[in-house]
């Protein structure tokens, strides 16, 4: 009996330690990043650091606006492609395809999540980048004759990122739509609505908190993605003027430059890390707030 209680207590302690390790790691990383990055940010001036357009560590210029713009441009494009595709796919799987076929599709889409990001980058480099320079560019040149691109661009990065965030958007949205109570479907059909009207006017609105959550998680993934984007965007720290322009992203810049950075440069890169950290934190909080608010409206 007594021995039993000892075992019980030990297991509790063990679980506590495991939980503590996770929490402490987050805290330590946060403290470390902020301690390493803040001096450079304040030394260069917070405003200059955040809103300076010139990132040339060789000349001691650490304005990250171009990097932030690059990250946001690529992310935005990824969402622009990924959200409609993902949500439509989720609707198709949840409402239209028979259950058995849907299971096959879902499995395939979830496999996408397991492909290493460097493979995505490589695929993009071999397939998408040439397509852009050989086929998309000539089309675009009819509109804008001066356009030039190597193919390494916002478009390439955004497109591949869109594919990478699909599993997140599809699987969470599909869950949200599937778990809309059958009552709502029946109520809609019973007043003479057809399937399309039921999906658009009842099911998607009823599942919107889940769909929104999936979008925000996808956005978090897109912003944090490093390798594929680094391979595909060209890493030119300049403010982009069009989607065929190359850009450098926050994550890509850290990964590329950390290995050879001098002390000040390194601190500035940690500053970039802080900015990323804050962006993602804000997104997560927004996601939670939205999910809570919408969930409450739906249930009340």
């Amino acid at each position: 009996m007594r021995q039993n209680r000892f075992v019980e207590k030990s297991i509790e302690k063990l679980l506590f330690v495991a939980a503590a390790i996770a929490t402490i790691s987050v805290a330590l990383i946060t403290i470390f990043v902020f301690r390493s990055g803040l001096p450079a940010m304040s030394g260069y001036g917070f405003a200059n650091f955040l809103f300076g357009a010139d990132w040339s560590p060789g000349n001691g210029e650490y304005g990250i606006l171009a990097l932030t713009a690059g990250t946001l441009a690529v992310t935005f494009l990824a969402l622009l492609i990924g959200i409609p595709t993902g949500v439509c796919c989720a609707v198709f799987l949840a409402e239209i395809l028979p259950k058995r076929a849907a299971a096959v599709f879902k499995f395939a889409i979830e496999l996408l999540a397991g492909i290493p990001s460097v493979v995505y980058g490589f695929f993009g480099l071999i397939v998408i980048v040439p397509i852009i320079s050989e086929h998309v560019l000539p089309l675009w040149q009819r509109v804008n004759p001066d356009a030039q691109t190597t193919g390494l661009s916002i478009l390439a990065g955004g497109f591949i990122l869109a594919v990478m965030i699909l599993p997140t958007i599809v699987s969470i949205s599909e869950n949200a739509i599937s778990s809309v109570p059958q009552d709502y479907r029946e109520a809609s059909l019973a007043v003479g609505a057809n399937k399309r009207e039921t999906i658009v006017r009842v099911l998607i609105p009823a599942a919107k908190s889940g769909i929104l959550a999936s979008i925000i998680l996808g956005m978090g993934r897109a912003i944090g993605e490093t390798m594929a984007v680094m391979v595909l965007t060209g890493n030119v720290a300049m403010l982009p003027k069009g989607i065929l322009d190359p850009v450098a992203t926050l994550t890509g810049t850290i990964a590329m430059e950390m290995s050879y950075a001098g002390p000040t440069h390194q601190e500035a890169l940690f500053g970039v890390g802080i900015v990323l950290f804050v962006i993602i934190l804000i997104l997560n909080l927004a996601a939670q707030a939205i999910a809570r608010k919408m969930g409450a409206v739906g249930r009340e």
Binding site: P181, D183, Y184, E186, A187, S188, A190, V202, P205, A206, V297, G298, R299
Partner: peptide, 8 residues
């Protein structure tokens, strides 16, 4: 229906 099912 059996259970009141107004839309949200």
């Amino acid at each position: 229906f059996q259970k009141p099912n107004p839309f949200p």
